[in-house]
Design a protein around this nucleic acid. Structure first.
Lengths: 125, 125, 125, 125
DNA sequence: GTGGTCTAGACCACT
DNA sequence: GTGGTCTAGACCACT
């Protein structure tokens, strides 16, 4: 798993890690059933604190993206119907926010396509 | 301004108020430059506490949606480029989350169109 | 008086106007006793709403930078001891904020000099 | 953490608390990664309402000074580049305000040094 | 015990 | 009458 963290960003590091793992799933680079690196391994690889990675994993688990297996690591889970509906609601909310800022329908469509293609090309956004 | 709050929802009331005002802007029911109801008026209308409405207004102001004019009320502001870029980033993040949950590109496109039309028809989502 | 407004900025326009007038005073381009353009003239020049300029002038007056002469315009006032002390407090607070963010003493010194020289060269910052 | 509030001051109590915590960070009395007292503990210590302290913490979090960990308290965060640039802009604005009030460049320099030393000596300003 | 949320009631300065 | 601020007291979910 290839992740990078930007220590200069205003986005908290644990959030960056969480977002990039989600992006990797979106890109299909990791699939349901596959294992994530152990907290210790990822912390070591990224040169960040154990707690930082732990916080990212805890959030992903709470969101239903992964299952924590205790000492044996964590695995990506199959998306559940319940999570999917929650995700759709969030997506609709994001559409609403954008429209409120004056973004047009076609601009959103383009943004969807562009983002989708970048993800599938392995570029996390 | 026609808002409703669901006291049973797990979404905090102040957040519901905030979301619905954004949706009203997205629907074009209120436009930049127009005044929002006073905190007390809206609190009275929705039968919630003044502080709950105040919290929603404070958040909207901090997000750049409205301009608090002190005792003279609050007005919807013109979207700024900076906010717009932030909004696009958030939207791309929402696309990523959805794709990670297995939603297809065409499903997202449909969801964009459907949500957009509902908004323009005055249905807050 | 040469002012410019950035409609794309996330800083409210009235705030930009207010800041630039302060910067003009700092640069010595306008001096105590001198008249500011009328609200109507400035609004026309900048192609913004009367109320926007009015808000900037109201704030400047309330801060003690200018005296509103009603229909006869506004003039820059001599700095008062009371305002000066308030300004020093604000400046010390700004130093504190910067130091809290890890900015060194010498970096602040340099920033003072650099900003001062830019102002005196007529470059508003 | 040693804070004091002045109930007679025109500065809101929550703002005083916020400012003093920033000053403590500036003085190096609390460092990134360290925990802040719980809201209830600080409210009790200062003999103010829990909501007043909460408002200060919320503002600090929004400004990027602290990270709210939910029920596990709040910790001081590492300054980010983005926040730093914002802070520098604010500092330059403070220089401009002072120069507009007639403060000389050397007076500002002195004020920087003096404030810096007071902070490092543990005197919040 | 904790933070998050909500209500109820109060006082102030400003218009 | 208004927003800003503050207090007091309450319930909830989470640990």
């Amino acid at each position: 798993m290839l992740l990078t963290v930007d220590l200069q960003s205003s986005i908290p590091i644990y959030q960056q890690i969480r977002n990039q793992i989600v992006a990797q799933v979106a890109a299909g680079l990791v699939r349901p059933g596959e294992k994530l690196p152990t907290i210790r391994a990822l912390a070591n690889q990224l040169q960040v604190n154990l707690h930082t990675v732990n916080k990212a994993y805890q959030q992903l688990a709470q969101e239903g993206f992964i299952d924590l297996l205790g000492r044996r690591g964590a695995i990506i889970v199959q998306p559940s119907t319940k999570n999917l509906q929650q995700t759709k609601k969030s997506f609709q909310q994001a559409v609403t926010e954008a429209v409120a800022q004056g973004v047009s329908c076609s601009a959103l469509q383009q943004l969807v396509i562009q983002t989708y293609q970048q993800l599938k090309a392995g570029k996390t956004v």
